[in-house]
Design a protein around this nucleic acid. Structure first.
Lengths: 150, 150
DNA sequence: TGGACATACGTGTAATTACACGCATACAAT
DNA sequence: ATTGTATGCGTGTAATTACACGTATGTCCA
């Protein structure tokens, strides 16, 4: 039983390490368009659900609402998204601007290149396995209340 | 070919999502001793390599050196680590204090509980598969230069 | 109608991450 | 010894993450 995260024993730490490493790779590929993989994810997801609220988007992204709020600010400052009042005055309606769509479509090929680079470095089979396992993990984790604390 | 990270297509985004979710779980478990899973990882790894430099520790943790520098500050403020001058006056020597060791040993059972909770939620097989795949990924990624940018 | 409750959101605070840049120290070659 | 180069670190800046708390709006029932 491994007792420190340098060991492969701590799944959490391994996940964080790998996420850091892979994120850096994607960020480098995306650098020419000036957005990060996190921002790309937000833009790409929003593109598929225009007009949704912050909470709805956060739910899909599996992100803390307040985290998303903070992450939206740079995108707004860049003019890539708009945050309007909704019918329900509590909620806000998010949508991509023209500039946002432009940047997103510029970023897509770079994202694809990053994806392919990672696949090439890790091996197709490894990536398939990783994807499959992570999908399963997300399913079960979002099903069960994560807050199940002792 | 999936085109946005809400899809399972982007390995990077899936990794980040899962890392966020699992980190939150570990953080909740570790809350009673007042440290995060990131801090636990640093303390536990440092415990196994007392006296090493910042760069060496960062290398093992697969963390940016400057990121680690920032992450060490709260631990120093809490009195869990000490940062001394080394023989080589450029380098600094890191070590756990008594308080650090105490907190670490208090945290270990909580970490173990988190580990078990995650295993129970995800299923033993899923966790094994995840661990194995992530280990392989880390091996290959740290072997190949991550900075292989177009 | 009024109050209880739920929903949607922002902010304060603080940790985590990383790039660009600059400084000091060590070492090697001339 | 001087000059260059490599190594080890810190800081400025900015994005990412999340908890606790507070505010405003909507809903529902007594």
């Amino acid at each position: 039983m491994p007792l420190h995260p340098g060991d492969p024993g701590c799944i959490c730490y391994r996940l964080r390490q790998t996420a850091r490493l892979i994120s850096r790779t994607y960020d480098h590929f995306l650098a020419p368009v000036g957005i990060s993989i996190g921002q790309f994810g937000i833009l790409a997801t929003l593109a598929a659900m225009q007009g949704s609220s912050i909470s709805e988007l956060a739910d899909v992204l599996q992100m803390e609402r307040t985290t998303l709020t903070r992450n939206l600010l740079p995108l707004k400052k860049l003019g890539y998204i708009e945050i309007e009042e909704g019918d329900d005055k509590r909620a806000k309606s998010l949508c991509l601007t023209r500039a946002g769509e432009k940047t997103l479509s510029d970023a897509r090929p770079l994202w694809h290149a990053a994806q392919q680079s990672v696949e090439q470095q890790l091996g197709k089979a490894e990536v398939q396995s990783l994807s499959k396992t992570l999908d399963g993990a997300m399913d079960r984790l979002s099903a069960s209340a994560v807050k199940a604390v002792p």
